[in-house]
Amino acid sequence: MLGYILRRIAMMIPTLAIISVISFVIIQLPPGDYLTSYAMSLAASGEAVDETEIENLRLRYGLGQPVYVQYYKWMSGILLHGDWGQSMEWRKPVKDLIWERMALTVFLSLVSIMVSWFVAIPVGVFSAVHQYSIPDYIFSTLSFIGTGTPGFMLAMVVMWVAMRQFGLNVGGLFSDEYIMAPWSWDKVVDMLKHLWIPVIVIAVGSTAGSIRTTRANVLDELNKPYVETARAKGVKERKLIWKYPVRVAMNPFFSTVGWTLAGLISGQTLVAVVLSLQTNGPMMLRALRSQDMYLAGSFLFLTSILTVIGTLISDITLAWVDPRIRMEG
């Protein structure tokens, strides 16, 4: 198993090298660069464009240099100094920008996943065990509506209801007075007050999907002979259902757990934009639009790294929970 993990990690190096090149090329693909789009937005808002300033900036960020030189500078910065470059738009190191938002993004993702699993797994198992009963039909209908509703629309509806009906200040993760304030107990409480809307909105879609997955997987396993064996042993029905079919039906959850890592960067972008959450998704979207090269490139690269690591984590977890695919040696 250890040898397998080491081999997989070794394989990740060339994969990531290729991905980094591709990410960098993709960012360079649109015509122009950050400065041309910056000049255009200045011109569009009627401000004077100072050509010499633009030229200075171009020199400073090395935008005039050939692409491979730019790539080399960026990569060597990451590898040697952990420096992901400067964001041109924010005038700040990319690393700081991403880390500022990472904590919140991770927290929000984890809470949403927990909520959705805690709801989806019991409901899905119940639906499967009581297939074609009235509660099963109700849960199925609800989960179809849940999967069919786009997250951003649900976000708008929830915000509208919260504001109109309850007069709540929604949007964002903090009240105005806490946005810039340092972390304190009050700020945490304030965040929890805001947190439920994004958690609900994000959790609804994934819960609905997970209910369907759980139900289908448990149904597949429920009539397997090993369940009957357990029944013939005299094991209590409830106990045997959780021990045998549900246990096997959970494998797809373990095999997708790694993908949530990549979702930390780009997941739920639309919902985050609508709810103006200080997470990574909206920042990445904005960086791509303004051709904020190093920020966008870093986001893309980071997403890829997390995908590759996440896949490895999934494989390891799956091997851990399912002895059938455990590697020898």
Binding site: K224, A232, G234, R247
Partner: peptide, 26 residues
């Protein structure tokens, strides 16, 4: 009472030993 008889006093061996044993339990 039925569960006490099942497995203890009347036990059963099934047709397919592969699928009749759980794949994820020893």
């Amino acid at each position: 009472e039925m569960r006490q008889i099942r497995g203890a006093e009347i036990a059963m061996v099934f047709q397919e030993p592969m699928t009749s044993l759980s794949p994820v339990h020893t």
